[in-house]
Design a protein around this nucleic acid. Structure first.
Lengths: 225, 225
DNA sequence: GGTAGTTGTGAAATACTTATGAAAAGGTAC
DNA sequence: GTACCTTTTCATAAGTATTTCACAACTACC
């Protein structure tokens, strides 16, 4: 299972279906939007890892969308255009486009480009960069959490749970979801295990431990205060 | 001044001239070859940072050249093809092509793609010969480590592990990652082997050996103190 | 306020990971 | 082929993480 969400933005339902089919078959989570405005709203809700956007669209074209997207995020973009359509590739790359494809394309090309862009974007940016949530700084590659500039020593599971919650503050995760994400889909642990790890996390995080909130009957979330 | 050498391989003198003009104007050192065989000979002599290669060429086509090049080097490749020429983009990317362009192209596009490929390829590569981490000076070419100005005698594997860890201080590497990076992807060793080498490294580095930290459940990292 | 269901907690049991010394296997130079 | 060095394997000890369990504490709902 690939943990990547891809947002495909195109006004033609046929094209969206086509792209979705190929990507879904390859294990990606695929979301759709019909125009730039729709897409921007969804970006904030879905936090996709990649946007594939048609250059020619009504209301807001691909470039305008890209500009707006890059203004506030680092989400990579692949532009789509129909053969013969006049548009400026250099301009697209300058705006921050990471790649482009000309329709019609082969499924293999789509997959190859998506993989290439994701690899580039998330190896050196997202993953290698630490992110901050309130007083916490979490660095995935260094496997390190600091709280007010002091390193907090966490075990693998504790780190995994905290990282998961912290990547989407406010979002609630069920214990089962946490198990799937941190342990893997084939885990054989029970929900009580999560409770115990949450207990330890709260303890180790001291005052900041209260950021991890219990959502009664559902699971846990991390709320920035 | 850009310290990059680019080798352009095309059987048409006109196209070579064109590309050379654009790139030279932008500060690159440009070399030319007329076919795949000629190019391979020059690669070893000139050690270029990038090859731009026409797909359709006599004697040895672009793909054959690329295969041979990637067999022995990591030099990135941009493929050139004429509009309408039948060739397989996916095949090109699979062979290890880093990008491709369709003739005719605008100078701006050429520059943008060259810069993009060079940035990607050389960001994380060994640009300098020796580097310093805390009390250690590591010289890749001389295969030499000094600790407080005293040479430390390391075996090949020990050196490889230390160099790997030291190039990204703070970053955690799993034993498997270390094996892939130092031994190569087709290694057949076990994780315990790494443990033993780490033991020896710590011993040989004396006090500085404590820079190599165990990250429980994951692997090892080098932390500068 | 009672009750059923859910979560928190401490302690114990279990499972797993790493360090280490010694020995075997593999290479290389002479 | 021998001597010497490197690399790998192995067994065991030491250490740490993870899970389970029992019960207490809490929450929602009637």
């Amino acid at each position: 299972m690939k943990p990547y969400t891809i947002l495909i933005i195109d006004d033609e339902p046929q094209m969206r279906n086509l792209v979705r089919t190929f990507l879904a078959k390859d294990g990606y989570i695929v979301e759709e939007a019909t125009d730039g405005m729709d897409a921007l709203a969804k970006v904030y809700k879905l936090q996709p890892h990649l946007c594939i956007v048609d250059v020619m669209m009504p209301y807001m074209n691909g470039f305008e969308f890209a500009k707006e997207l890059k203004r506030t995020t680092n989400i990579p973009i692949i532009f789509l255009s129909a053969r013969g359509e006049e548009w400026d590739k250099v301009e697209g790359l300058k705006i921050g486009g990471d790649d482009y494809m000309v329709k019609p394309f082969m499924p293999g090309e789509l997959i190859a480009r998506v993989e290439s862009v994701l690899r580039r974007s998330y190896q050196h940016r997202y993953l290698s960069q630490s992110f901050t949530v309130g007083p916490l700084v979490i660095d995935h590659l260094a496997h390190k959490v600091t709280l007010d500039n002091n390193t907090v020593s966490l075990t693998v599971k504790e780190f995994g749970i905290l990282e998961t919650l912290a990547r989407k503050p406010g979002r609630v995760y069920t214990r089962e979801q946490i198990l799937n994400l941190v342990w893997g889909d084939d885990h054989k642990s029970t929900d009580r295990t999560i409770d115990t790890h949450i207990k330890t996390l709260r303890l180790k995080l001291g005052e900041a431990g209260s950021m991890i909130e219990t959502v009664w009957g559902i699971g846990y979330k991390l709320e920035v205060k």
